[in-house]
Amino acid sequence: MIKRVPADSPTLFALPEGPDFAFEDMARREGFKLVAGADEAGRGPLAGPVVAAAVIFHDRHTPKGLNDSKQLSVAQREYLFEEIMATATVAIASSSAPTIDRIDIRKASLDAMRRALLLLSVQPDYALIDGRDVPPELHCRGKAVVKGDARSLSIAAASIVAKVTRDRMMTRAGLVYPAYGFERHAGYATAEHRAAIKQVGGCLLHRWSFRPLRQDDGLAEEHSKD
């Protein structure tokens, strides 16, 4: 007869309902005092920068409702953005579309997170990074956390700051390049955006290494003349 032993992994119902301080507390138990969370927004769009944010909470009093920015409404993100900016140490950095084309989106995203962490007015000695990779040449110890924006409060806050900042940047870009509707889709590959690219071509904000721009010989030729 096989003897049953308790599972060493959490059950579905034991998983946290939202992000918490478990990863931050783990780092502090190892002797690290200032723990930052870092995340980015805008890896997938056809246009605009990728924006990264880094956040340090100095106590456990965080704004209520923090979560992965993708799980929040625009109004919730805007409200939490202001609360985070008022209660935490925050820094923001970005990598432009030409940089993304030159070094690729993965490297551009990691470098933006590295620079956001470096720009913090109070330097952390440990960083929690959303995703599978720790940025190279990071100035402090780092840990990659898969789906970190849904698991760590510091990363969740960084995801909100990055998302709101990038959305605001793309809204302003819509005033400069009104033909594309950036204020409505933030540069993502919506039907409206793709139709505008076909009709009027690309602009300086477009990522020419991304499909469909890379596959459109006519647009690529036009861009090379700019």
Rank of each mutant, 00 (worst) to 15 (best):
V146W: 05
R132G: 04
A22N: 05
M85T: 00
K107R: 13
T99V: 12
H61E: 13
T99D: 09
F21W: 12
S69W: 04
K143C: 02
A97H: 05
L15Q: 15
K33F: 08
G42S: 03
L110F: 08
F13K: 14
S121E: 15
A7H: 13
L119E: 09
K70Y: 02
P124T: 06
R29P: 00
P45E: 08
T99Y: 06
G18Y: 01
A91M: 08
I84W: 02
G18R: 10
L12Y: 14
G42V: 03
V146Y: 12
R102D: 13
G142Y: 08
R141S: 11
D25K: 12
A97E: 07
A27D: 04
R151S: 13
V145E: 02
L34M: 10
S109K: 00
A127K: 06
S109M: 00
E137R: 14
S109A: 15
L72V: 04
R77L: 11
L110K: 07
V35R: 03
L34F: 13
A108V: 03
L138S: 07
M85A: 09
L117C: 10
D25G: 00
T62E: 14
A52V: 09
A144K: 03
F32R: 14
E82T: 14
C140L: 05
L138V: 07
N67A: 12
P124Y: 05
N67H: 12
I103Q: 14
D133P: 00
V74S: 11
C140F: 07
T62D: 04
E40F: 02
G44E: 01
P45L: 06
L119A: 14
D133S: 11
A150P: 09
E82R: 14
I100W: 08
K64M: 09
E17H: 09
V90F: 11
R151Y: 05
R151P: 05
E17G: 15
H61V: 13
D133E: 13
K143S: 05
R141P: 01
V134F: 02
A41M: 01
R151M: 13
R115A: 06
Q71N: 13
G31A: 09
A116R: 01
